[in-house]
Design a protein around this nucleic acid. Structure first.
Lengths: 343, 343
DNA sequence: CAGGGCCTTGACAACGTTGTCCAGGCCCTA
DNA sequence: TAGGGCCTGGACAACGTTGTCAAGGCCCTG
């Protein structure tokens, strides 16, 4: 009795192993392995005996051991910023579909926008020996991944580029999208336009601001410092910013919102506002059509799919230089962006 | 040369192992293990030499091997229905937070509402020897998990109960929530109320229908067959159902929508409708406040948190009988549910 | 200075699987 | 019927880590 469980604490609840199956079926260990993996060289009768034993014992192969032996895990990791953000749901889902099509499992985790936690998570995934890694960066220094990449972990960044290392990235055209959105407002007669964005050290945030400035400059319009508000996407901060922009002596007549979280809060804030204020937001949001919110839509699923496909191409041996892929955005005019300036 | 890589195909890109670190630091293998795991009994000087070697070689412990040896993976799996559904984002996020607090990693995957895929995914996670499993069921027969549960995989079901096995479940009060919502409509004068729900074999869907019937019966109101529409949440089907309910000879004056997907489509459909129609939806949706949609809100994060906490209690050795936890819902009155019947 | 005890260190086996390689049995042909 | 080749099956090592246990060095006490 005591002999059958010398290390009682470190068994997987005493699950049967291939050895147990082999004993029960009266065959060798390797024969069980062959049956489980569908390898050739087993007579139908032997196979039947093995399958019976597997069934009876409730055997399930231990993939940890398999991974250790084979060196490939058929697992990829996805580090994202916040699973609860509706933008990342479809992205994550798209990555999963591609992974599944390649017979791989997806492990994902959120960094909660904390660079340190991003690193911790990415390295934990590497310790599990994921074959590849897709990262939506929170931080702006990814040199910590260099040894991993050198050691063969395929890595692709999405939504934002990697910081301080040369790596694949799949991005939306934040600059172009924002420029188009602001140009759209200008085309509808606005000259004083406010920009409310996320923290400036976030790459997409900075690019969108750059797009805003470019559109204004292209139209020969000045940008006053107080028209630009950057910071957290916290609803309190954003609604304060909206109030300030609209109650200034010369208030803006239109707003550009830097991402989905900001747009939602701006829409709420504008609902209480007496004068009509034009609005274009970056990112589509659910029910925006009903609310008549004009947005610059990016295709989250396409971002995920493109990144994942690139990852698996690398895993399949492609040896291209790291590249940056930029996906276009679409302006969806729904009313809020076509409102003319209030008199 | 050929000797250092006898199995070239099955190395992790030739990553250094503890043996390599030990050789480089001039110490024994076990000493490296001790340093890496922060075990006591290593002199500061030895530790420093080991850490230097780790740094130089870029060593990272192989957790696959560790798992194999220790028998615990510090990983839990989450099988959900559709990551792209905004309801599951916060749920998944909450599970992740709890897992993180317990030092565990979360692997999750979507079943895409396909029972077969749910099973495939759950068993794949078991093969990875996750310590525990949280499942949002797609199917209604979970006997396939019996061997796993017997073998020690802690398992908790969320949002819907397990089918044909006795297991922990954390649910929202679908019956009570729907009953309250319908009673709310009745209290505002409605007597002909339609119910548009998801497929009837989904547990929550059936419970909500039951709640609807109960409220009607409590009020002594009849329920005509044509008032109840069950099926997929496909927008086409749902908007057809809305049209039929509103164009019947004696049309309903209010609608109860069985879940968030249905509610969104109903809101869209009602936007085009001339007569005001009252609406209460199950599940809160983003921006519902702005649209004035009255809903029965469930707390997705609380569902996830409760389930995860229960899971970890089991993993920590708690040996309670499987139980069902039901969380309450909240009616959020925002206007659409308080519209009186059109004359 | 001898003996005992503690502290540090390392050798070794084991976790469950798969790749390699060899043995034995069968069938076919000459 | 003998010999050769093919097919099936199994013994064994290895993957990288951790638990066990014992050896050696040091310090302290008597």
């Amino acid at each position: 009795m005591a002999d059958t469980a010398r290390h009682p604490e470190n068994r997987y609840g005493n699950r049967p192993t291939m050895k147990d199956v082999a004993a029960r079926a009266g065959v060798g260990l390797k024969t069980v392995s062959r049956v489980v993996n569908g390898e050739p060289g087993v007579t139908p009768d032997t196979e039947r005996r093995v399958r019976e034993a597997i069934e009876i014992l409730g055997f399930r192969r231990n993939d940890s051991a398999r991974v250790l032996r084979k060196g490939r895990t058929a697992t990829v990791g996805l580090v994202l910023e916040d699973l609860a953000d509706p933008f990342y749901g479809p992205l994550s889902r798209a990555v999963e579909e591609v992974a599944r099509a390649h017979g791989a499992l997806l492990i994902n985790g959120s960094s909660a926008e904390d660079p340190e936690r991003e690193q911790e998570l990415a390295l934990a995934l590497c310790a599990r020996r994921v074959d590849g890694l897709i990262v939506i960066p929170s931080g702006d220094d990814h040199r910590y991944l260099e040894p991993e990449i050198r050691a063969g972990v395929a890595t692709v960044f999405v939504d934002r580029p990697a910081g301080r290392i040369d790596a694949d990235a799949v991005l939306s055209d934040s600059f172009g999208g924002a420029r188009d959105g602001v140009a759209h407002l200008i085309a509808h007669g606005h000259r004083r336009i406010g920009f409310i964005g996320d923290r400036p050290r976030i790459h997409t945030s900075a690019e969108r601001l750059r797009g805003y400035r470019a559109a204004m400059e292209d139209a020969g319009l000045p940008v006053r410092d107080e028209w630009v508000s950057l910071g957290s996407t916290d609803p309190g901060r954003v609604s304060t910013a909206v109030r300030e922009l609209l109650t200034a002596p010369e208030p803006v007549t239109a707003l550009f919102a830097g991402n989905n979280r900001v747009t939602v809060t701006v829409v709420r804030a504008l609902a209480d506002h007496p004068r009509p204020v034009a609005l274009v937001g970056f990112d589509d949001i659910e029910l925006a059509d009903l609310l008549g919110v004009t947005v610059i839509a990016q295709d989250a699923a396409a971002l995920g799919r493109t990144a994942a496909e690139r990852l698996f191409r690398r895993l399949d041996g492609a040896d291209e230089a790291p590249a940056r892929v930029v996906l276009g955005t679409t302006l969806l005019a729904r009313g809020s962006g076509e409102t003319p300036p209030a008199a």
